[in-house]
């Protein structure tokens, strides 16, 4: 099957999740466990970088839905960045831009988190 991998880095208190390859019904559990770990580790500020994601299926989209409620309850968020046109189109068709903040670059997303933090204080 198509390959998929993730990596996570921490940047100014924001966890950046990098997706690589094909995110579908078979690989979605990997991303699910990534999110579970972040949440159980108390990390609710998450930026997902789609730069190297080639394809996302409906099951892949479902992963974001599964965790967003819990994360927002904890004053966190999942922000999506750096999507290629094809991937963005899939998100767009489903109306994701209404539900998630989608940014052009990873830095924009992180900046947004930092700003909200300042406002909060």
């Amino acid at each position: 099957m198509a390959e998929f991998s993730t990596s996570i880095k921490d940047q100014s208190g924001v966890s950046v999740v990098y997706l690589n390859g094909y995110l579908d019904a078979h690989t979605a559990p990997m991303l699910e466990s990534n999110f579970s770990e972040l949440i159980s580790g108390g990390k609710f500020k998450i930026v997902v970088n789609f730069k190297d994601l080639v394809y996302i299926s409906s099951a892949g989209l479902g992963v974001f839905m599964a965790f967003i409620e819990k994360i927002r309850e904890n004053e966190g968020d999942i922000k999506l960045t750096t999507m290629n046109d094809k991937v963005y189109n899939i998100f767009d068709l489903l109306g994701f831009p209404l539900l998630y903040e989608i940014y052009k670059t990873e830095d924009d997303a992180i900046k947004k988190f930092v700003e909200t933090d300042k406002l909060g204080k």
């Binding site: 099951a59 989209l61 479902g62 839905m65 599964a66 409620e69 068709l93 489903l94 109306g95």
Partner: peptide, 29 residues
């Protein structure tokens, strides 16, 4: 389930008025 969703498009054609009304919930155009 939280991670499940359905994309759908629903349309109605009125034969008398010759009008198609359509709404789309996340489905392909």
């Amino acid at each position: 389930d939280r991670k499940n969703f359905v994309s759908a498009a629903y349309g109605v054609i009125d034969f008398e008025k010759e009008i198609l009304s359509i709404a789309r919930a996340g489905h392909c155009p």
